[in-house]
Simulated scan of single mutants.
Amino acid sequence: MSDLDHEESGAGAAAAAWRIGVLFSRKGHMQVPETEHFRGTALAVEEINLAGGVRGRPIEPVCYDPESSSELYRRYAERLLTEDGISTIFGCCASSSRKAILAAVERRNALLWYPSLYEGFEYSPNVIYTGAAPNQNSLQLARYLFAGYGRRFYLVGSDYIYPRESNRIMRDVVGREGGEVVAEAYVPVAPHEDQIRRVVEDIRRRAPDVVFSTVVGTGGQAFYRIFREAGLDPRTMPIASLTMAEGEVLAIGPELCAGHITAAPYFSTLDTPANHRFVAAYRARFGREAPVTMYAEAAYFQIHVFADALRRTGSLDTQRLVDAALGTEYEAPQGRIRIDPDNNHTLLHARIGMVNAHGTFDVVWEAKAPVKPDPYLVDHVHDHV
């Protein structure tokens, strides 16, 4: 996939190419996870094209960098759907960016493939959701924390929809199980370090058993660093997250993160043949030290699921692609996944990892089978967390 690191790519590609849009940030406060989304996408497209493309035609990505800005996401999505004549987009990390482009995607009957965990409570016939819904990470995380650390939770998040909704779910679960939320605090999406320090000082004062963090991007990196600088010990009071992955751990420093916990479908240390192939290919393409994360993995497998649907339909028509994708199974690096025809979300593997001294994750718990997505938490009242 030539020129993928430019704003647009593939201008000289064959006219017969399958053209797709790619919207992930390589600048701004979400640069680290979104660059991993971008790289996973690039690797999968390159693999497919090197193997002869789809029906003998290459996939041609048209890429823009929204720079972690919802307004740029909105503008570039409109450009892809109108000026570029593209109907299938792979993109978005934060829920704020997904919400920013969803109306345009639906209005033009386009298709968005969304590879990020999110807060749930959404369904669009124009979206394939390949990241975790709350019943695939939050509920398992709460169960693990109750068993191993205690029931006094401190909730802290960035101030936008994903953290507020995720904390609402966690507050409900904690209360229903007889636990206590000792405080709930929010910081701006791009906070000043003094704002983080005030939260960390409040955590020290209230001494919870565990901190559930939905602080994302550069704010999350600052939070983990300041938490350790304040002398708080993750062995007795861990930060538990749904978003902190290997790339940001590397950016913060593994020595500052060891002992913290993340719930996710994928960690780079998984010992499966599909994951060994994925990690080797990723590092061959992006460097021996490149962190391999859940963001890269979901972006990678969704391109392969798309290509499979495209082979069967021979068309970029949205309805035909969606119909073909629903029910599709794929041997992803995390294990076998399936696009759920009931709700356009994905059956994923629920896992909990603890950061080790190398900056990767030791898997400390995993579900025995893929977990069916329940984005509206219809059934979670029956789950005993």
Rank of each mutant, 00 (worst) to 15 (best):
R228H: 05
N343W: 09
V174H: 07
K99S: 11
D317L: 04
H6Y: 15
E83A: 14
V45S: 03
A280H: 09
A350S: 15
R312C: 03
E180P: 04
V210P: 02
T35N: 12
F90L: 12
A77M: 11
D3N: 15
A240C: 05
E47R: 10
T313Y: 09
V215H: 01
A290G: 05
Y186S: 01
P125Q: 13
L141M: 13
E8C: 11
M244V: 11
V173W: 00
S95M: 12
V364R: 12
R225H: 07
G131D: 01
G12I: 00
C92Q: 10
D202L: 09
C93I: 08
I48N: 09
I86W: 05
V200M: 04
L43K: 08
I252S: 02
A298R: 13
G157P: 02
E177V: 00
G53P: 06
A357R: 13
Y114S: 08
F153Q: 04
G219Y: 05
A298I: 00
D159R: 06
R57W: 04
E46S: 15
Y295Q: 14
A230R: 14
A258V: 14
R338P: 06
F153P: 05
G217I: 01
E255V: 00
A133E: 14
L250R: 12
R74A: 15
A185C: 11
A284T: 09
H349R: 14
E71K: 15
A245Y: 12
D362L: 05
S70N: 15
A44T: 06
A16H: 14
T88Q: 11
W18M: 05
V32G: 03
Y186E: 03
E67P: 02
Q319T: 13
Q136W: 03
V173L: 13
R151K: 15
I196R: 01
A104S: 15
R205V: 02
I59S: 11
F153I: 00
E331Y: 06
R277P: 06
R285D: 03
T313P: 10
G220S: 04
P66L: 07
A324M: 10
A325S: 08
T262D: 09
L347H: 15
T236Y: 11
R108C: 07
G359V: 07
N275H: 08
P373R: 10
Y144T: 01
P33Q: 03
V292T: 02
A299H: 13
N344V: 00
V200L: 04
E366M: 14
E34P: 02
N135A: 11
P61N: 03
L155C: 07
A258R: 15
E119Q: 09
Y162D: 07
L316F: 04
T328L: 15
G327Y: 01
T88S: 10
D340N: 12
L256E: 00
R74F: 10
V215M: 01
I101T: 00
P238R: 07
T130A: 06
M1Y: 12
M244K: 12
Y129F: 15
